[in-house]
Simulated scan of single mutants.
Amino acid sequence: MRYIWTIIWALLLSNMAFYVLSSMQGGHYSFGLATVIGLILSVFVFVLGDAGIKDETTE
């Protein structure tokens, strides 16, 4: 379930950022490019969360 929510949030946030930045620059908004970047971002978060960051346990 956490993977599904990560993908949804990555897609929403990347599309929002692309839309706002393209509007500020007066450029063209590309839904496809923003979606691809969102998927790449979600894969990066999966790798970072599963392999990169370890929980520190104190005894």
Rank of each mutant, 00 (worst) to 15 (best):
M1K: 07
M1N: 07
R2L: 07
R2K: 08
Y3T: 05
Y3D: 04
Y3E: 04
I4P: 01
I4V: 14
I4H: 02
W5D: 12
W5I: 09
W5P: 05
T6Q: 14
W9Q: 03
A10C: 00
L11Q: 00
L11I: 04
L11N: 00
L12D: 01
L12S: 01
L13Y: 00
L13I: 01
L13W: 01
S14F: 01
N15H: 11
M16Q: 05
A17Y: 10
F18C: 10
F18R: 13
Y19Q: 13
Y19I: 13
V20Q: 14
V20G: 06
V20W: 15
S22I: 09
S22W: 09
S23A: 14
M24Q: 15
Q25N: 10
Q25L: 12
Q25S: 12
Q25R: 11
G26Q: 04
G26M: 03
G26N: 04
G27I: 10
H28L: 07
H28A: 11
Y29H: 08
S30M: 05
S30R: 04
S30L: 05
G32M: 13
G32A: 10
A34G: 14
A34V: 12
A34I: 06
A34Y: 12
A34T: 15
A34K: 07
T35D: 04
T35L: 14
V36K: 04
V36L: 10
I37Y: 03
L39D: 03
L39N: 03
